[in-house]
């Protein structure tokens, strides 16, 4: 049933692998155009140059939020774009990471740098346990099951007020490094940027690893791959766990950065927002994921001035982009650029 990957992307991918396997030297131009080197380089240049445009803490705040969302979306894109599995519950993992950091530091006095990996470990374990039964499901059933996991996490967080502060949320102590409190846009900008670059790097490496190749090989022929002896479930579980851990780390960052967490972070809408970012930017494109996160984080800020028309406009833009660019922003635009280049 429902294969959710866009058709056509596998051809392009396979070509790359063939080239590598045949040992043909790539031209410098091809290296620059490749996602791994050219894309990484472009991302780092953009991240390094962006602070020149940021005038105050609010603008840093938006940039940091983009970065945090992008980390989640890069991971989620591995799951949706490459493994072909949808998740409507990743906000749950995000929130678990955030609350792990909040609770361990505020209530048990742990250092934030310790709380974050502990949270990620816990979330990874949880994801690993539920991955097998959940990934047996497909299409909308999988969507429902992941949604259910997210909703249950949300309910537990808002009910157990003694631990989580309940629906009104709880404070998170500021992160301290060698007695210095980390506060303010610029510091957090670089922290989040480092994590984002790491996430993108991990993602690109996974895509080019045997796991990534196996996942791409599954495209449209899962049963054939299984018959050929590929343990498809194992790879899917792996990607599910990786994406959950990335969400958890992003959640921890968000908690320490904003010094406040609410159950809202685990809401169904937050999950939907992450998925929308993946699709908006373009499935199976790591940089599409970053662009999707950037556009959909900025949009509500830009629309805030339209007051009551905000939601109408947001809904219209979502529909229009998906109708006119069903493959997402980045693949559509690079497709256009490539065609124009070829014509020349």
């Amino acid at each position: 049933m429902a294969d959710i990957r866009p058709s056509g992307y596998s051809k392009h991918r396979k070509k790359q692998t063939y080239t590598r396997r045949l040992g043909t030297r790539a031209t410098p131009m091809q290296v620059l155009m490749s996602e791994r080197i050219g894309g990484m380089g472009a991302l780092i240049v953009i991240i390094a140059a962006l602070p020149l445009l940021l005038a105050n803490n609010y603008q840093y705040d938006v940039a940091i939020t983009i970065g945090i969302n992008a980390i989640v979306v890069v991971g989620l894109n591995l799951l949706i774009g490459y493994a072909g599995q949808i998740s409507l519950g990743h906000a749950g993992f995000f929130a678990l990471g955030a609350y792990a950091s909040a609770i361990l530091t505020a209530r048990y006095g742990l250092h934030g740098a310790l709380a974050m990996p502990l949270g990620a470990l816990g979330v990874g374990l949880l994801a690993y346990i539920i991955a097998r039964p959940i990934l047996r499901l497909s299409g909308h059933y999988l969507a429902m099951a992941t949604l259910g996991v997210g909703v249950i996490i949300n309910i537990v967080i808002s009910r157990e007020a003694w631990l989580t502060g309940g629906p009104d949320g709880m404070y998170v102590p500021p992160l301290e490094v060698w007695g210095v409190e980390l506060y303010g846009g610029p510091i957090w900008y670089w922290i989040v940027a480092a994590f984002l670059v790491l996430a993108v790097w991990i993602s690109l490496n996974i895509i080019d690893s045997p796991v990534g190749r196996a996942l791409r090989g599954l495209h449209g022929a899962e049963v054939a791959a299984e018959v050929a002896g590929v343990d498809t479930t194992r790879y899917k579980v792996m990607v599910f766990v990786i994406s959950a851990v990335m969400a958890s780390v992003a959640g921890s960052l968000a908690a320490h950065f904003s010094e406040f967490v609410t159950p809202e972070k685990a809401s169904f809408f937050h999950s939907i927002l992450f998925v929308t970012m993946v699709v908006f930017g373009g499935m199976a494109s790591t940089f599409g994921a970053v662009v999707g996160a950037a556009v959909l984080t900025l949009l509500p800020q830009l629309l805030a001035d339209f007051a009551s028309y905000e939601h109408m406009i947001l809904g219209l833009i979502m529909m229009a982009v998906m109708i006119f660019m069903p493959r997402g922003l980045v693949p559509t635009l690079t497709g256009l650029a490539r065609r124009r280049g070829a014509r020349r």
């Binding site: 609010y58 938006v62 904003s258 406040f260």
Partner: peptide, 20 residues
């Protein structure tokens, strides 16, 4: 700014009010 009752949005908008 409209928060929709969301504390995280409130925070971002408060920053916007204070800084921008």
């Amino acid at each position: 700014y409209d928060t929709g009752g969301d504390a995280n949005k409130a925070r971002t908008f408060a920053k916007r009010l204070l800084e921008e």
